[in-house]
Design a protein around this nucleic acid. Structure first.
Lengths: 132, 132
DNA sequence: GGCGCGCTTGACGTTGACGTCAACGTAAAG
DNA sequence: CTTTACGTTGACGTCAACGTCAAGCGCGCC
C-alpha cells in the first residue's frame, strides 16, 4: 500500500501532480488558499487539499488574482451560517457569475474572430498553392 | 462638427472612453500594442487605434499577458505574406484557439459549480425563513 | 505676453506572484 | 553513525503592469 491511491501526499508529489513548484505551494499556503496538515514540521496533503488546489489552479488559469481566488474557494466550504451570511454569499455568487459570463462572452468573440481570420488565411494559402 | 462622431481623439478622451489611464495608454504604446499618429508631439487616436485598443483590453480581461496580446493583435493586421508565413500564422491560430477553448471549459465548469452552490444556499435560506 | 490647461517625457515606486539562494532540520538507507 | 535526499523557514531578487511624481513644452485666451 504505497501506490498512487493512498490518501496522503508529500509536497513534492503534489507539486509534480499539478505541475507547480514547491515555492508556489508554500506561497498559496501563506495566502490561505490551502492549509495542509502538519506532521511535525512537514506538510501532509490530504485529498481535500488537492481538490482545493485544483480549484485554485483553475482560477489561476482564468487569470483571477489570488485574493479573489481565495474568496471564491472559501465560499465552497462554509458552514451553513445564518440568514445574513447566506444572503451575502448569494450576492457574492451573483458577482462571480457576472464576471464569468463576461469572460465567456469575450472568449466566444475572440474564438469567432479567430475563425474568420483562419478562413482568410487558408483561403490565401490555397490561392498561393494553386498558382504554383 | 466636434461631436462624439468625429474621427480623431485625444489621449484623455480615449482614456475616458475605455476606462483606463493615460499611463496605461503610454505603456501600451511602448509595448507596441497601439501606435497612434503624432501631430507634433501629441498623440492622435484614429478609429483603428481604438479598435485595436478594444482588442487589447479584451485580451486583458481574459488575463492574457501583454506580450501574448501583442502577438495576437498583430496577427490581425498582417500583409498577405508568403507561404511559410501563412502556415506559421495558421499554427499560431491553432495554439490560441486551444488556449481559449481550455479557458472556456474552465469557465463552464466554474459556472456549473457556482450554480450548484447557489442552489444549496437558497435551499438553506428557504429552510431558515420557513422556520422563523 | 503672461497664464493656465492639457500633453509629453523621464524616472522612480509599487504590487502580485512567484524564483532563488542560504542555512538548517530530519528521516531513511547503507 | 554518517551520508543523502527531501523538507522547512527566512530573506532577497525579479518581472509584468502599471502608479506617481517632477519638470517641461505648446497653444489658446485675456
Amino acid at each position: 500500500m504505497n501506490g498512487a491511491d493512498r490518501q496522503t501526499r508529500t509536497i513534492a508529489e503534489v507539486a509534480e501532480e499539478f505541475g507547480v513548484t514547491h515555492r508556489t505551494l508554500r506561497y498559496y499556503e501563506d495566502k490561505g488558499l490551502i492549509s495542509p496538515e502538519r506532521r511535525g514540521t512537514q506538510r501532509i496533503f490530504h485529498p481535500r487539499d488537492r481538490v482545493r488546489l485544483g480549484l485554485v489552479l483553475r482560477g489561476r488559469r482564468l487569470g483571477f488574482p489570488l485574493d479573489e481566488i481565495a474568496t471564491i474557494v472559501n465560499m465552497y466550504d462554509q458552514q451553513p451560517g445564518e440568514k445574513g451570511q447566506l444572503e451575502y454569499l448569494l450576492s457574492q455568487i451573483d458577482d462571480r457569475r457576472a464576471d464569468l459570463e463576461q469572460r465567456r462572452a469575450d472568449i466566444e468573440a475572440a474564438l469567432a474572430e479567430l475563425q474568420t481570420l483562419e478562413r482568410r488565411c487558408s483561403e490565401q494559402l490555397r490561392e498561393l498553392t494553386r498558382r504554383s
